[in-house]
Nucleic acid binder design. Structure first.
Lengths: 217, 217
DNA sequence: GCGGCGCCGTACCGTACGGTACGGTACTGC
DNA sequence: GCAGTACCGTACCGTACGGTACGGCGCCGC
């Protein structure tokens, strides 16, 4: 009766520590695959069929549909975090490289089928009350990358390479220069071609523009 | 049987010329209001009740649910277009003012409850095939403003105030500097406070940054 | 006045889907 | 061997919602 995975709870932060079992991970991967392929036809029956498990098991593990979706979003989020960056003895080349890496990684993420499908789902649910999928996606997307980029920006400022008053504002400018209209166009179904080369060029351009605005050289 | 409003048709562009009758406009306004208030509880029953009309009439006028939604999106889009801008004899003050005005107007639009609700709906539908709501929203949002800003940018270049090779790239940079993370955060349900003063400051900052990157003075 | 029309309100239908129940099967500990 | 457990497959239930049918009423042309 009680789901053995953490149900979303108002007091619990958006990042859950518990990892699902291997079988559960397979189920969540099935959800992700189905989400990408079928869009909004994400029925519990379809998930059970795709994952070769019974609906009863789904409900036992995840509580209800929202629990399953929440677990899926968390599961996907748990795979995105990566990368550590030098923060002291920063020179301009390293700073540029770090920012470029952030930008390219971020573009890859938001351009991926999985991210698009996940964001669509979360945005759809953001309209109704209950089940804070949007909050989870934000916490693990926009805000997570913010918390990882801002130390780099501040290290750049400490090293005399960047000049800004408010770190948050500087980061949001960086975010805008990188993302531009890409995410909204993809979410709305625009077939925006974005291969690896394009991403690298976009990331480079964004970093150069950011340095032009905030660089001190 | 046949809906007397233009049904979406693959060959028809995303901007329909026909205007709905006054009564139909009232119905579409009811849809918009309901969309904002109830989020995804947008049932045909609720619309009929809210608009004090019968479901039969809804189906007669709009064909089916998608037809109603499409008509609603078009109806909202038909109210957004506005503003004419000087393109010749451009000086830097006028250019700055025009861009600032574009930025502020755009921010007001994407921050409005109606836009958020409409974009959520269109994004939700972009996942499934059928009914190109996403395309309509894109055509009347992102692309419409692009077509209106780009002549201003080119006029600025012709007047020797701006320097860029590709207008589209320059516009996308402008778009990113203005929008930053605002739209995605609002769509995902973040309670981002954005009053008129904030919008004006944001627009001003975006324009200054854009001029710093592309200005020639 | 009257037939026809357009529309409101409501009752109704079919289906899709979230959620539950249950029988059958494989595996594990004793 | 056997009880217990975990889980698969499937059948089932209730409800919400898209779509249709129909009675009634006001309005317009004649």
């Amino acid at each position: 009766m009680q789901p053995n995975l953490a149900r979303q709870d108002e007091t619990v932060p958006e990042t859950a520590p518990e990892l699902p079992s291997a079988r559960q991970q397979a189920v969540l991967d099935a959800v992700l695959a189905l989400m990408v392929e079928e869009g909004d036809q994400l029925t519990m029956d379809a998930v059970a069929r795709r994952a070769s498990c019974s609906k009863e098991t789904l409900y036992k593990w995840f509580g209800d549909r929202d629990g399953l979706l929440t677990a899926t979003v968390r599961w996907q989020a748990s795979r995105v975090h990566a990368g550590r960056y030098a923060l002291n003895a920063l020179d301009v080349a390293t700073l540029r490289e770090s920012l470029q890496d952030f930008a390219a990684t971020w573009l890859e993420v938001i351009a991926s089928d999985t991210s698009v499908a996940l964001n669509r789902l979360a945005i759809g649910h953001a309209g109704s009350r209950k089940s804070n999928l949007g909050g989870i996606v934000l916490a693990n997307g926009r805000f997570a990358i913010g918390e990882r980029v801002k130390p780099v920006l501040e290290a750049g400022r400490a090293a005399g390479l960047l000049a800004f008053d408010d770190t948050e504002t500087a980061f949001r400018t960086f975010f805008g220069l990188v993302g531009r209209d890409i995410q909204i166009r993809l979410l709305l179904g625009d077939a925006l071609p974005l291969d690896a080369g394009e991403i690298r060029r976009d990331a480079g351009r964004a970093v150069e523009q950011f340095l032009a605005l905030y660089g001190r050289a």
